[in-house]
């Protein structure tokens, strides 16, 4: 168990305002020589990856390439065997637990949409909102007008204002995807990790998602893992190809697609 979670009852929630992350070198997320193995199988093999501040990065790769494990490592769900993961210059993510990493400014959207099904859409967004998330303050928390505005604004962005007071569990699959993205936005993270955001979406919804994600880049850094090549092409500026737990190729979409190694991996030798 991590040192961090063994802290006091109230939790030493390290709520870092976004400005605190040291990005003087222009890089917001460092992964260096990260290796993770499960019973001898190396899910990540000496992986090094750098995400620039404000960048929109797409990560592709065949099944089992280590994409989900990489996200698990960044968000603290899985501890790397070796290697380091830093947010900015000074925040060592490998010593922090999930909630601390989330509060430090890393948001994550799962492959399968996970929302709070019995809470209303409004409550889902309220719970995700950047605030003091310790027990005692939560007990006495009251929404300010400003916070209500913020929720309303995000709700409009994700197009769920109509179903504001419906339990989230009753939403359609696409709406759940949107709600989860909305929850990410409420968290105001510096880095967004997005796992297959357009699975189960219509073309229209896909276009909207693409617009949303590209709009977010700049202010936030966005890392998208996606299988849908058309979608990747529509948003990607820089693409990283993972294969067998390490980086196979990196560059813009055209460079990567013409790389013979990538072709080999995707089409099979």
């Amino acid at each position: 168990m991590a040192k961090g979670s063994a802290g006091t009852f109230e939790g030493s929630a390290h709520v870092a305002p976004p400005g605190e992350i040291d990005t003087r070198h222009g890089v917001i997320l460092y992964m260096e020589n990260v290796t993770v193995s499960f019973d001898g199988f190396k899910a990540l093999n000496d992986l090094s990856l750098y995400i620039d501040d404000g960048e929109l990065r797409c990560i592709i790769g065949p099944n089992g390439a280590g994409k989900t494990t990489m996200m698990d490592v960044i968000t603290g769900k899985t501890r790397p065997d070796t290697g380091s993961v830093f947010l900015g210059q000074g925040t060592d993510l490998t010593t922090m637990s999930e909630y601390q990493i989330a509060n430090a400014g890393v948001g994550r959207k799962f492959q399968k949409p996970t929302i709070f099904p019995t809470h209303t859409v409004f409550e889902n967004l309220e719970l995700a909102m950047q605030s003091d998330k310790r027990v005692w303050p939560s007990l006495f928390a009251r929404l300010t007008g400003e916070q209500r505005d913020k929720i309303a604004q995000v709700m409009a962005t994700i197009g769920l204002t109509e179903v504001c007071y419906s339990p989230a569990g009753l939403l359609s699959h696409g709406q759940k995807q949107w709600l989860e993205i909305g929850m990410l936005l409420m968290q105001e993270p510096r880095v967004l990790l997005v796992d297959e955001p357009v699975a189960g979406m219509t073309h229209q919804e896909m276009d909207r998602t693409a617009a949303l994600l590209t709009g977010l880049a700049g202010e936030h850094s966005v890392v998208v893992v996606e299988h849908d090549m058309a979608f990747v092409r529509s948003i990607a500026r820089k693409v990283t190809v993972l294969h067998q737990g390490s980086v196979l190729a990196e560059g813009d979409m055209d460079t990567v697609q013409n790389d013979p190694r990538v072709v080999e991996v995707y089409l099979g030798a």
Partner: peptide
């Protein structure tokens, strides 16, 4: 959704 609560930033244990 315990995991979601965690990734949203709540210390679930507390």
């Amino acid at each position: 959704a315990e995991d979601r609560a965690r990734f949203v930033g709540y210390k679930v244990e507390s």
